[in-house]
């Protein structure tokens, strides 16, 4: 097993597993409470207290799930890629475990994004799926998550799996700007960005509120799941180390 954090470095000082476990116990209840609060408020405003769209009618409400899920799908991947990089270079144990811990969470967000997008595409565009650059690049993101999980578990030695996975994550990171800018670089059926754009959001205020509430809900859900799963990974590694010592 690698050394638990290089205590001399800044990263090592602020994020060793012991300190993380203590922090996790404090963070988890708060994160879960905020998740519930934001989901209740967000879903209420999304379904009962926001207007339909002038063209799309009530189907626009799919946006309040679809868009936050898409944001989180990208965000999760970026955090994993950064952690993989830190893990590869500085051999920091928390960074190494982080990507492995949150990969299923990111895959789930991507899956939600694809499914809700499909359900939205049929009534609005007239097709469940098209192979335009945006949809295809998000599907590739889903495969990257699934491929990462398969690769990490494909080695007998956990450390080798984590290292191989980290390389895949870093190579796959090139897909993130492709997803983001696909709608600007090429003609796509998917419309361009509405919120994160240079000239300000093109969503009316009454629709922006539920969207931001739901985005908050998804973020807190992500924090809760990430902390929970990372804690589980640390326990699992401690358990394996202890049972190895017991066997020897």
């Amino acid at each position: 097993m690698t050394a638990l954090g290089t205590s001399g470095s800044i990263i090592g000082r602020f994020a060793n597993p012991g300190r993380f476990l203590a922090l996790a116990n404090g963070v988890l209840p708060v994160a879960w409470a905020l998740t519930v609060l934001f989901f209740v408020a967000g879903l209420y405003v999304a379904f009962f207290d926001s207007p339909p769209d002038y063209q799309q009618g009530d189907t626009v409400r799919i946006m309040y799930i679809h868009v936050p899920a898409a944001w989180m799908a990208l965000f999760t991947y970026v955090t994993m890629a950064v952690a993989a990089f830190v893990g590869l270079i500085w051999k920091h144990v928390l960074a190494e475990l982080y990507a492995k811990a949150v990969a299923p969470v990111g895959a789930a967000f991507t899956f939600i994004c694809l499914v809700t997008g499909s359900l939205w595409g049929k009534p609005m565009w007239g097709a469940w799926w098209v192979w335009d650059a945006r949809l295809t690049s998000v599907l590739v993101l889903f495969f990257l998550y699934v491929g990462y999980m398969a690769l990490v578990d494909a080695f007998d030695d956990e450390q080798r799996g984590i290292n191989a996975g980290a390389c895949l994550l870093l190579v796959g990171a090139i897909n993130i700007p492709i997803i983001k800018f696909s709608v600007d670089w090429w003609n796509t059926l998917h419309q361009p960005a509405s919120i994160i754009r240079m000239d300000g959001a093109t969503v009316d205020k009454s629709m922006l509120l539920p969207l931001l509430l739901m985005a908050g809900a998804f973020h807190f859900l992500f924090i809760a799941l990430a902390v929970f799963r990372l804690r589980t990974e640390i326990f699992a590694r401690k358990y394996r180390a202890a049972s190895l010592r017991g066997a020897a």
């Binding site: 769209d53 002038y54 629709m207």
Partner: peptide, 18 residues
């Protein structure tokens, strides 16, 4: 042979659009 609708990135309530 196939016709798909493409909508823009603007979301607006009906009253405001009117």
């Amino acid at each position: 042979t196939v016709l798909l609708a493409k909508h823009d990135e603007k979301y607006t309530p009906p009253e405001l659009a009117k």
